[in-house]
């Protein structure tokens, strides 16, 4: 694999919560198009690892290199990078005060407006010779940004068959519907990778299927995914690499075929005997 295929590089990642060392010196690369499934017993640091990837938890030490920058560095504008790293949560975290379609449109509109404002400001400064550079003509407008965001949101809702729920509030949706909306909300920014933090753990058993189906769909379209899950079936079927974590370390890394058929470490054998 060439250097260009690396999407996220994790170097020496450590995370402490007080005296509790949750992640201990983790190194890995996540390649474009990879479907990494992270499994392990509870308290092993899976979720913390995932949440460190987009700095939802600030790493105590180490580097996360994404888009050519170390995003673990506090001076980097993390918001720009998070637009390219979608995240799906166990408890959906849809915005309760917004309708379904507003949930999906919020980030594209706000960020579009912000960029437009910045571009106009830069152009003005350049015209006044207060800043060097070339004037980039403004080609869009607030109404165009809004219209595009709405069009895209409707398209995304159609994809999950929930376009008639566009103006409903999240409280009127079922768990499975909420999670599917949350997934397309993360797609609205055209991310390079989506991080899934136990996306089906808070769902009724009968709703797990619809969410996994959508995730498989994304996987088939080539989306890079990092998934923390207890769904071993999904891990086997969709995963291209399994990471087995225990006590803050990667105990095993292997393809699903190899990992499920011939787990090497004792801890993994024990874990698999319990969950399979």
């Amino acid at each position: 694999m060439t250097e260009n295929n690396k999407l996220i590089e994790v170097r020496g990642l450590c995370k402490d919560f007080g005296d509790n060392k949750v992640l201990k010196d983790i190194n890995t690369d996540i390649m474009k198009g990879e479907k990494v499934v992270v499994i392990g017993p509870s308290g092993s640091g899976k979720s913390t690892f995932l949440r460190c990837l987009n700095c939802m938890e600030d790493p105590t030490a180490g580097a996360i290199i994404f888009g050519g920058e170390n995003i673990a560095d506090m001076s980097v504008d993390i918001n720009v990078h998070r637009q390219k790293m979608g995240m799906v949560f166990q408890h959906f975290n849809l915005f309760n005060n917004k309708t379904v379609i507003e949930n999906i449109m919020l980030a594209p509109i706000l960020i579009g407006k912000k960029n437009l404002k910045k571009q106009k400001k830069d152009n003005l400064l350049i015209k006044l010779h207060l800043k060097k550079g070339e004037v980039i003509p403004v080609t869009t407008s607030v109404s165009e940004i809004t219209a595009n965001a709405r069009e895209k949101a409707i398209e995304l809702l159609k994809r999950i068959g929930l376009e008639e729920k566009a103006d409903a509030y999240p409280s009127s949706l079922s768990g499975g519907q909420k999670q599917r909306v949350a997934i397309v909300r993360s797609l609205a920014m055209d991310p390079d990778v989506i991080l899934f933090d136990e996306p089906t753990s808070a769902l009724d058993p009968e709703m797990v299927g619809e969410v996994l189906e959508l995730m498989k769909d994304l996987a088939n379209q080539g989306m890079t995914m990092v998934v923390v899950t207890h769904e071993m079936g999904f891990a086997k079927e969709v995963g291209t690499r399994i990471i087995f974590m225990d006590e803050g370390r990667f105990v095993e890394e292997a393809t699903p075929e190899e990992f499920f058929a011939h787990p090497k470490s004792e801890r993994a054998i024990e874990f698999l005997s319990k969950v399979l």
Binding site: N54, M56, N79, V80, R82, Q83, M85, G86, M87, F89, H91, F92, N93, L94, F95, N96, N97, K98, L106, A107, L110, I111, A182, R185, S186, A188, M189
Partner: peptide, 26 residues
């Protein structure tokens, strides 16, 4: 719910926007 702030930050909103648009209205 702190998840509201996390949800807003995860799509790339700044702390201030997340506060103004999502947390404070609720």
């Amino acid at each position: 719910d702190p998840g509201q702030m996390e949800g807003a930050r995860s799509v790339g909103l700044s702390y201030t926007s997340a506060m103004m648009k999502i947390v404070i209205p609720q």
